[in-house]
Amino acid sequence: MKICWFCIPAHGHTNPTLSLVKEMTEAGHEIYYFSFNEFKEKIEKAGAKFISCDEQEFEMEDKENAERVAKDIVFSTQLIVKTTLALDEMVNEKVKEIKPDLVVSDSVAFWGKLIAIKYKIPYVSSTTTFAFNKNSASYMNQSIWNLAKMIFTMPKANKQLKPLQAKGYPVKNILDIIQNDNETNTIVYTSKYYQPCSDTFSEKYCFIGPSIRPVETPFEKTSDTTIFISMGTVIKNKSFYNDCVEAFRNTNYQVIISTGKSDTPFENLPSHIQVYPFVDQMAVLSISDVFITHCGMNSASEGLYFEVPLVLCPQTQEEEAVAIRTEELGAGIWLKRIRQSKDILEAVNKILADPTYKQSASKISKSFKECEGVKAAKAFLEGIKKE
């Protein structure tokens, strides 16, 4: 089977797919993975044929405008149209050459879905966040005002689809592109238990659990209590890491901070607080007792896989959905406002003092480990080919 796979330039959307790509290529299937040069090495390591989208003349504005994309349907439509048109010639040429049996695209790599529609190729959505429908949308905090605004701006958004229609994409409505329904074949990288409103999704949704890397570089546990802090690649609150340092300065906890691309300066760090740009996150989580996280779907899932309760500090609507669900299941505390550094310490100490947080994290972990993983996803994709 030949598969054209499309993804956005984001580690959080690419990484979960790689073990499935590896499973498929080892079974003899051909994966043609349309992505960006930053991800070339890891995609090829998984056995796929990498096709670069970087040479096309457009910028992925949604990297810096994630919140606007989520809230502004007119802006989102402009971005979808601009991106699809920029990739149109190259992608169409490759698809005609490859003649794929299946198209798999990230749930927000809409150009992949559009190609599948245009060429009437079976389509699968690869969803690295929670799956969303009218029932689970409440986890994205979509207010009545936001929904009314979306409906009001829909005609303007639909008018912007004309350039796509002129290029042969048979779309009449923006919702045809951005919305999946219960008839859309979808792979979701979480468990039914962790997924909000999972009973409202059809059998077309395949919940395979998170993709967890093995520990590569073991990390030494130097205290009875280890706190891991990571807010992802980019952090909005520039004082957050220093607030954490002050929160834990006078404790005997082992504190490990992974700052990513943050340029936060640190002064007078006590010896029990260690700061790194990057760490082997699986290794650190395997020895951690509490994880302070931005609630990226991958990070939260990794923490919960290792049965670590979470202090939840989301920065986007998508991350807020993870915070809401995790707190709802009793596996973490959402720190909605930090007035002073002791708020962080109090949240951590509350989790350490109450064993139900650990028990709830263990229950989610169990649901992850009971998922059939990439083997179930492989069978799911092969079954679509036979339909």
Rank of each mutant, 00 (worst) to 15 (best):
Q281I: 08
I364W: 01
S35F: 02
Y276C: 04
K192Y: 07
E318S: 12
L161M: 03
Q317P: 07
K204N: 13
K238E: 14
E55I: 08
Y139P: 05
C206I: 01
T259F: 07
I174S: 03
S230N: 12
I178E: 10
K96H: 07
F34Q: 01
S143C: 04
T190A: 09
R68V: 11
Y169M: 06
A116E: 13
Q179E: 14
S19H: 10
S198H: 14
F130G: 01
M140E: 06
P163Y: 14
Y276I: 01
W5M: 08
P218R: 04
P9V: 12
T14N: 15
Q274W: 01
T217K: 13
K2L: 09
I80D: 04
S362Q: 12
D289K: 09
S271L: 09
T217L: 05
T293F: 13
F291W: 13
K221S: 06
D343G: 03
Q340G: 08
K45V: 02
Q160G: 05
V275Q: 11
Q281F: 05
F306S: 01
L285R: 08
S107E: 08
A86W: 09
A70Y: 13
C53F: 12
P309C: 13
E89Q: 11
I174Y: 05
P214I: 07
P100V: 01
Y276K: 12
L87Y: 09
C244M: 07
C4H: 05
P210I: 04
K156L: 10
K42D: 08
I229D: 00
V69K: 12
A247P: 05
N298W: 07
L312V: 04
G383L: 05
C313A: 08
E382R: 04
K238G: 00
P9R: 13
A109R: 08
M140Y: 10
T14F: 09
N237V: 06
D54C: 14
I178V: 15
S271W: 00
P355E: 04
K99L: 11
Q317C: 02
S19M: 11
I227Y: 05
W111M: 15
S35H: 01
V124Y: 14
T129P: 00
S230F: 11
Y33W: 03
Q179S: 11
S362K: 14
N15L: 15
F240A: 07
I292A: 10
F201R: 06
Y241T: 03
T293M: 12
V108L: 11
V103H: 01
K120F: 10
G373C: 02
L304W: 03
S360H: 11
G209E: 04
S105P: 08
V348W: 03
E67T: 14
I121M: 12
P9C: 14
A86F: 09
I227Q: 05
L164S: 08
I212G: 07
G28F: 08
I256V: 13
M231H: 06
H11M: 14
K172S: 15
S271I: 03
E97S: 12
V103F: 03
E319D: 09
A377N: 02
T129D: 10
M231D: 03
T129Q: 11
S76F: 11
F306C: 02
G296D: 13
Y139W: 06
F34S: 01
I121E: 09
D343Y: 05
